[in-house]
Design a protein around this nucleic acid. Structure first.
Lengths: 183, 183
DNA sequence: ATTCATTTTGTTATGTTATATCATTTTATT
DNA sequence: AATAAAATGATATAACATAACAAAATGAAT
């Protein structure tokens, strides 16, 4: 079964702290605004169309810092719009992933918002909107955080170099317990 | 749809070279024998029961160096045994994965034999049979090779250390084109 | 050897994730 | 306003995976 969505009653203002590893004063409303503003900027710059549907799906993905299943999003959309079919959600997610605004976590078959889509055009190999993304995923609190680590990037490049392998796409997902959940 | 299985007619002796990145004189029959012998050893040592069914599934996984879908294996088993249901395959795969004899590639939802289950008890954190596995997956020839890279391992450990994250499980899958397929 | 508990396998049904296809609507362009 | 392209709606189905319970095989203890 799918992970439980947070109880809407506990999340009424949509600004509850579903923590990226329990940051103390995390203002989630601002966090989401920033992400949506960034998404607008990315799309404006690159000619993508952040339609109301896509924008809303992105907003729903950003409701928490925990990966969300496509069918969870589908249910949320159905609450708002009545009949909605899976392709509606998957097409929106495809677009958002293509723009690098959302990442799919292969090990969870779930999706999470990308906090630095706007800032990371430098690591955009192909001129498409994507960038390699590496995750720490806490199996206790369910949060997933995208990490940037030069040493890890270097090791991957070096591995590719020495084997003559041309990397097109990376899945790096480390599951375990975050520092906070170890106490 | 699932990736095509190699044509059985092209693979009659089960020793055709479905290359781990096209190694010149790869003797696949020996390669598989070694894997099966190793599997027997691992199970003997650790009290796992490599039943005929499980052994056969392992052998089928090893037919090539390309990841195989569970339903591909199911079809192969059905050819041999008539009615076989999905749980039969999934249970065998669960066992083989638990013993570290097979790995699941999350990004492909497919399975591949592990060539060093026998040799890699040192990196077995939990005393279960598993070890972290990192893959290069060629999108051209379809082969997946499990790589061992100290620098990569180090970078992952270091990342975990500096973030206080306790890793329980890793998914590292790099997709692209292998050296041979770049020509 | 027989009983008993445990593990493995068989069987049926269903859950979960994702896509193919074609119709309709919306948007951008001429 | 006409047209082409992009996005969305709608229906159906494919692909991957597990729950639950019954039957059979295995191992251990008497």
């Amino acid at each position: 079964m799918r992970q439980n969505l947070e109880n809407p009653a506990e999340n009424s203002a949509e600004n509850r702290v579903e923590n990226p590893f329990a940051q103390p004063g995390h203002d989630h409303a601002s966090c989401v605004s920033a992400a949506l503003d960034g998404a607008e900027a990315v799309c404006a710059r690159r000619g993508g169309r952040l339609t109301p549907l896509r924008r809303r799906v992105l907003e729903l993905v950003w409701r928490s810092h925990r990966p969300v299943g496509a069918y969870d999003l589908l249910a949320l959309l159905q609450d708002e719009r009545g009949r909605v079919a899976p392709p509606t959600v998957y097409r929106a997610l495809d677009f958002l992933c293509a723009q690098g605004l959302v990442h799919r976590l292969d090990s969870l078959q779930a999706f999470i918002g990308c906090g630095h889509a706007n800032a990371s055009d430098d690591s955009d190999r192909d001129g498409d909107g994507q960038h390699p993304a590496h995750f720490l995923i806490c199996q206790d609190c369910g949060a997933a955080v995208e990490v940037r680590d030069g040493q890890l990037d270097g090791a991957i490049s070096h591995l590719a170099g020495r084997t003559g392998f041309a990397i097109a796409d990376e899945t790096v997902e480390l599951r375990g317990r975050c520092a906070d959940c170890q106490n």
